[in-house]
Design a protein around this nucleic acid. Structure first.
Lengths: 225, 225
DNA sequence: TCAAAAGTGTTTGAACTACACCCATGT
DNA sequence: ACATGGGTGTAGTTCAAACACTTTTGA
């Protein structure tokens, strides 16, 4: 009789122009790795789909409800959990941190956003999972417009640039980037201007038109940065 | 107490220029889906890694030993197996069909290669898995030189073209394709010529130089068709 | 008036596409 | 000699990369 448990864990990315790319972590309040930071997640219910399970765990442990969620990879080394055999099916998700309050709940002592470049020690093999998620995000953002899941509905163009620079961790030429993105035609320039956050000229706000994107996609355009 | 079983299944692709792109299937000799064709696979042992499990199952069920193997996706809908809850972690692999004999063994009544465009009805959600594997292969072959895992050590250039056409299911310009591939510099033209299989001018044989590929990759080249 | 961030256009080279004729071999 | 498949080059166009100055605002 097989004796393996099935868990789901998620790497939830958030972004804002002030704090850059962030990851949502919980502090464990039980052994093993008590008081370590870890990815939110938990065991899958017997009659629950994997997606339902991770959404439930995220809600329970962090208060987050996620719009973009994608399966990442399944980790199954026999000893990745010191107690017993657990395979973890991992997901990564994208959220706008300002849309809700995070709050610890049943299984977590604490919840917090960490800058993706200043992460603490993590429990289990969660660092490896996080690295894989970041790599996947880097790759995917180049050919699917998932970056918009991380931005407000209306955003100054510079936010999009900064997001791409934060995710890809490299400089991007402002003019070429803008040309490239705008040529796809799914960004709408609103009449509004950015509310200032200090000095500098306020930028025009843009919005991502999902319907237009699907429509253009049907006509055969291919988003690639 | 959680009651979920963990299985692994694999989509094994083979290729030769005569039969095109093929997939390895087994005929089930037990219910459910008795006598249906299915992907090779089975339950993971308690102390076995996922990769070990799928390699073992492939060996047991088909006699195949695989060089290129990559995790694909995990399927976990509650009712995908009519008996009880089974989640399947799926892999896809690439082999050269001529390198070994396939033979049915313990759990399989029969093993056979099927042309990827002429597949039979499949058990469970295996058709969905196969489609996902083919899509992944299509995508991956465009930016990683995994196609060579499907060819003999020495091959005429036309085999590579035909392979790409079979995988991508579209026509490719012969001259442009050759230019593109050769510019990377990891293909070596041998002094040998193709043994004829009927009429036509025999082509030069090429070989893929893995070491050179890694070396070039370190220097920063990026394979992309 | 100065500092900070947004806005914008051109030039140059590289890469991709389209395309057709000759060559070596077997029958 | 003919049928089959292998081998090859060029011209035109499109796309990517490099690059710097002006404008608007707050302090």
């Amino acid at each position: 009789m097989q004796n393996i448990k099935v868990a789901v864990d998620a790497v939830v990315f958030g972004y804002n122009s002030k704090d850059g790319l962030q990851v949502l972590l919980i502090k464990r309040k039980v052994a093993p790795f008590k008081d370590s930071w870890a990815l939110p997640g938990g065991l899958v219910g017997d009659d629950e789909s994997l997606e339902d399970a991770i959404q439930r765990e995220l809600k329970e442990e962090t208060g987050v409800n996620i719009n973009y969620l994608e399966q990442l990879y399944s980790f199954g080394k026999p000893n990745r959990d010191p107690r017993n055999r657990v395979i973890s099916i991992t997901y990564y998700g994208l959220v706008r941190p300002d849309e809700f309050e995070i709050k610890a709940d049943t299984d977590a002592a604490e919840v917090a956003w960490f800058n993706s470049k200043k992460l603490p020690q993590l429990a289990f093999d969660h660092r490896e999972i996080l690295t894989a998620a970041h790599e996947r995000l880097k790759g995917k953002i180049l050919y699917q417009p998932i970056g918009f899941e991380l931005l407000e509905k209306k955003f100054p163009f510079s936010d999009l640039e900064k997001l791409y620079m934060a995710v890809l961790d490299r400089a991007i030429d402002r003019r070429n980037f803008k040309k490239k993105v705008l040529k796809y035609g799914f960004l709408e320039q609103t009449t509004e201007k950015q509310a200032h956050d200090g000095a500098g000229r306020p930028g025009n706000l843009f919005s991502f038109d999902v319907d237009k994107y699907y429509q253009l996609q049907k006509q055969g355009i291919n988003f690639e940065i």
